[in-house]
């Protein structure tokens, strides 16, 4: 079958959903990071960094305690940015499921499980 044209995959859901997730993630994180820098400037760049590396529960606690300090906002922006590609993998899983492409649902799930294990270890356990 070497001379036959391949079946070209048409415009599909995965492309559209993944693109949407990436756009939303990048602009949300950029807004949070810019707000953190503006707040830091307002406070004269006097920044109190946490004594120990943050875990996600601590970051959420700081966010919910309504202390919108530059450090919390900056870390939140960075975490949203780091989570954006992982959310894109979830969009791919959903898209391939709707397209009934079982092979690539499995492939995307494998990538997601590796990422989830690594993120869980880094943000909750470490």
């Amino acid at each position: 079958m070497a001379n036959e044209s391949p079946v070209i995959q048409p415009d599909n859901l995965v492309d559209h959903w993944a693109s949407l997730v990436l756009r939303i993630g990048v602009w949300t994180s950029a807004t949070l990071m810019a707000a953190a820098l503006v707040l830091a400037a307002v406070h004269g760049f006097r920044i109190d960094l946490p004594a120990h590396p943050l875990t996600l529960p601590v970051l959420l606690q700081r966010l919910l305690s309504s202390s919108l300090d530059p450090v919390t906002l900056g870390f939140t922006g960075l975490v949203v940015l780091m989570l954006t590609p992982i959310l894109r993998v979830i969009a791919a899983i959903v898209g391939f499921t709707v397209e009934r492409d079982r092979t690539f649902v499995f492939v995307s799930l494998t990538v997601f499980i590796f990422l989830l294990a690594e993120v869980t270890y880094s943000l909750f356990i470490k």
Partner: peptide
Amino acid sequence: FIYFAHGHLHPMIGSAAA
């Protein structure tokens, strides 16, 4: 996330460079 967990990511430096 590994670098973040080790405390190598500074919120202001990371935000400004990104």
